[in-house]
Design a protein around this nucleic acid. Sequence first.
DNA 1: CATACCGCTTACGTTAAGGTAACTGCTTAC
DNA 2: GTAAGCAGTTACCTTAACGTAAGCGGTATG
Lengths: 118, 118
Amino acid sequence: MILTEGKTKHIECLEQMLPIRDALDVISGKWKMLILTSIMHGNRRFKEIETSIPKINPKVLSKELKDMEEHQLIKRVVHDEYPVLIEYIATDYSRTLKSVMMELHAWGVNHRKKILGQ
Amino acid sequence: MILTEGKTKHIECLEQMLPIRDALDVISGKWKMLILTSIMHGNRRFKEIETSIPKINPKVLSKELKDMEEHQLIKRVVHDEYPVLIEYIATDYSRTLKSVMMELHAWGVNHRKKILGQ
DNA sequence: CATACCGCTTACGTTAAGGTAACTGCTTAC
DNA sequence: GTAAGCAGTTACCTTAACGTAAGCGGTATG
């Protein structure tokens, strides 16, 4: 029955698309995955993260860090000491993004090779 | 030697970040991965793709299709027949994105579960 | 006590992404 | 011959992302 088949395909397709959009809502933009990479590499302090990412500026970094905290990808930790120390750390939840990041990285490496090879 | 270690870490971190940015340059935005999903599900014609993606409009679809053709993710095929028929088809190259899309999808499903569960 | 570092914020742009509505040229259907 | 479908385009507008430059309150350093 063609009508049913069409509808099924349509719904299947939507079920594929919507979670992809949900994921992209969280990770897309120029900076978030770079910031997460930086933090996962051991950079914890604002200045450390800032200098580890080429061309980022403090305003953008500040805003992205807030977004990422809302999405529970990082946690802002204030150490109440003499020179007040602030650290950003990756949450366990953010580690669920690791395979996404690895796939992005692998594809990016290949893509760059393809672009340069032309 | 601390200086060397710091520099190595820094470079390692950059080598992780730059390909991720390259990949995101190609796939990010609200629509590209949805369009690719639609095409991979068998939608080939402009109207088919348009109606398969909620809330997209023809202007945006047209622009994204052009971008994606430039990036060699799809091919626009004109069938020179009586009612001129135009089809968009996924390239072999676009299929290299499949694992990225699967990871995004899986993460998105999980993320939605987490958001709703709160 | 000037200078500089840290973790930002503020004010003020610019650019790009995305949206709305209407319309075009072509074809076929009633 | 009017209406409707296809594959878009055009003009116009809003929103959000991103960028620049400067500064601020605190601490520590010479």
